[in-house]
Amino acid sequence: MTKAFPPELVRGCAELVLLTLLLSRPMYGYEILTTLEERGNGGFQFKQGTLYPLLYRLEREGWIEAAWVEPEGAKRRKTYRITRDGRRAQRTKAAEWARLQAAVQALLVEAGDA
């Protein structure tokens, strides 16, 4: 299990992380948290209180859509799915992230830290 990433690092890529996660399938709030924890090997430790404002911000931008669904035999849950605009935003953010990562990596290599 990885040690939790520093919150300021997670904040910088939170939108990209959520959009990327929702590319695979629609999810509800708690499911997003647990899936993130699994995928990040414990590194992503979002709290519920942090998640909702973030989800609402993505919804306001039109990048995700929410709907109440009631699967058979399960409780009614508010599920989020990525929109077409959201997919576009995800691609843009992913490209920006790759550029940032490459730039930081280049600096580290130059300094002999990597």
Partner: peptide
């Protein structure tokens, strides 16, 4: 009410897990 319902639903899921 919708926000509270969502928080409650996720809260219950977290506790159940």
């Amino acid at each position: 009410a919708e926000v509270v319902a969502e928080v409650q639903s996720d809260l219950e899921a977290a506790v159940a897990a």
